[in-house]
């Protein structure tokens, strides 16, 4: 049972990243691979500042700012130098690996005797419940903020940028600036996932971000499938469904492991699972024709 609770917790912690990928991929139509780097960046900054005895809450703006810088760098390379977004993301991600390693100082930093976000809440006697409450509150606040931003006039301009760039420009919106702001927001959300996961698992590892973008993409694709299936139009509910997608994704991985699949095959299973989510709607379409 604990096994599944851990999966749900991980899904919650990673859902901030899923919201970020939902913004970059679904709203801006940009495949953003910076994620691998900015997720680790968030965890690295968290580890360094926590061991320097910063308060867990004080770290949040720093983590978000670092993620935002990484995201805007990708967007700047993409918009100013006219380099493909995918390549721009890969470049920034690759560069970030070295930066993360330099900042962290070594490949792994344990966070055992430090006061984390999760050790601050003592509502229940069971620490597992406290962890869940902390994660839920944290994600709930993020969800409200992102929903609010997307509903404002500025948010409409953001959503229009990915949907119809020519119209958006003719309505007085600098779409390049919008993309920079959008990827900055997306990657600061991703960095927040790094912040949460590092504290939840009590360590930061330089390799923890490798392939994490697939997890995020998978979560968004699950969410997206449900959104079009249930024809959800409300922004709040769309984001909630994406959040659930993140939890479902982790649950599927947990089930896979619990039925005895070799943990070494986990990345392969992840890739195949994402492939399945992407292909099932298409296969169905082919059958109908």
């Amino acid at each position: 049972m604990d096994f599944y609770i851990t999966a749900i917790m991980l899904g919650l912690c990673l859902s901030s990243m899923s919201l970020g990928i939902f913004i970059s991929m679904k709203i801006f139509n940009i495949p953003d691979i910076t994620t691998d780097g900015s997720y680790t960046l968030g965890a690295v900054v968290t580890a360094i500042l926590l061991t320097a005895h910063w308060h867990a809450a004080a770290i949040i703006p720093v983590v978000m700012a670092c993620g935002a810088v990484a995201g805007s760098l990708t967007a700047l390379i993409h918009t100013r130098l006219k380099i493909d977004a995918l390549l721009a993301g890969i470049l920034v991600m690759t560069g970030l690996y070295s930066i993360n390693l330099i900042v962290l100082g070594r490949s792994n930093v344990p966070l055992i005797n430090v006061s984390t976000l999760f050790s601050k809440i003592h509502f229940f006697s069971n620490q597992g419940y406290n962890d869940a409450l902390a994660a839920l509150l944290f994600i709930g606040i993020i969800l409200c903020i992102v929903t609010f931003i997307l509903k404002t006039d500025f948010g409409i301009a953001m959503r229009a940028t990915g949907d119809s760039p020519s119209m958006t420009r003719s309505l007085g919106v600098n779409t390049n600036t919008m993309k920079i702001i959008g990827l900055a927001i997306a990657n600061s959300l991703t960095a927040l996932s790094g912040y949460l996961v590092a504290q939840y698992q009590n360590f930061t590892d330089i390799n923890m971000g490798i392939g994490i973008v697939i997890t995020g993409l998978g979560s968004v694709l699950i969410g997206d499938a449900l959104i079009s299936w249930w024809k959800i139009r409300s922004i709040l509910w769309q984001l909630v469904v994406v959040l659930c997608g993140s939890i479902i994704f982790q649950m599927v991985l947990a089930v896979t492991l619990s039925v005895g699949v070799d943990p070494n095959l986990l990345k392969l299973v992840t890739a195949i699972f994402v492939l399945l989510i992407v292909s099932i709607p298409r296969l169905k379409l082919n059958l109908r024709q």
Binding site: D153, F154, I156, A157, A160, D163, M167, G172, R233
Partner: peptide, 26 residues
């Protein structure tokens, strides 16, 4: 000339702000 995935209302809202800045207010 229109954003297909946005509602008609969202499209009109953006058009109503063509000459001004798009603020962080609903």
């Amino acid at each position: 000339g229109t954003a297909p995935n946005l509602s008609i209302l969202d499209n009109f809202r953006l058009a109503a702000l063509r000459t001004t800045s798009k603020k962080l207010t609903i």
